[in-house]
Design a protein around this nucleic acid. Structure first.
Length: 174
DNA sequence: GTCACCTTAGAAG
DNA sequence: CTTCTAAGGTGAC
């Protein structure tokens, strides 16, 4: 069987916080983007109607999971996650992130220690920034030492919003 | 090869 | 308190 790498589908998950953009490979959800222009009319991807039933089912699960996390609640289930796009190190970081439940935080340094690379805190930060599936792979629950906010590729305001909805207290000062 | 990053513990002023 | 340094994975140039 030939593997055509164009086999990806893009679907929109509409929420009160905007339209999230989910991308699927044949293996599962491989990317999730924060809403771009919350005011603008989202361009509906032309390929959505061609998506196979399996992908549509995954997307239902994804959309429900996003809603839960936006409310600070644990998702009932997750779609299969295709994290094959990352390096070995990044995937090991992302896998650890998945074990951090709502309302719980780790620091970049703690993640590094769990990976037995106690000096790689900064590399962990880079891996968090490279996380293709924010929210479902909860990189927002990783704070800097001393509960400082750290950074966030999707915009710090998103990180603050997500943390607040989970009841997580953090240092507002950098 | 060099540099900049979602870092951080430690040393020095 | 502030500033500087070094360590480390990775992508961009």
């Amino acid at each position: 069987m030939q593997r055509v790498n164009r086999g990806q589908w893009t679907l929109i998950a509409a929420t009160r916080d905007g339209h999230f953009i989910a991308r699927y490979s044949s293996r599962g959800l491989c990317a999730l983007n924060f809403p771009v222009n919350e005011g603008q009319p989202g361009r509906v991807p032309s390929g959505s109607s061609e998506a196979p039933p399996q992908v549509l089912r995954w997307h239902q699960t994804t959309a429900a999971a996003i809603e839960s996390i936006l409310q600070g609640k644990p998702p009932r289930s997750l779609p299969p996650l295709d994290l094959s796009g990352g390096t070995q190190f990044q995937q090991s970081v992302w896998k650890l992130l998945c074990d951090i439940g709502p309302g719980v935080t780790r620091s970049y340094g703690e993640i590094a220690e769990l990976l037995r690379r106690p000096k790689a805190a900064r590399a962990v930060g880079q891996a968090c920034g490279a996380n293709p599936i924010p929210l479902l792979v909860p990189c927002h629950r990783v704070l800097a030492a001393n509960r400082r906010i750290g950074g966030f590729s999707g915009g710090l305001s998103w990180k603050e919003r997500l943390l607040s909805r989970e009841g997580i207290v953090f240092q507002s000062t950098r």
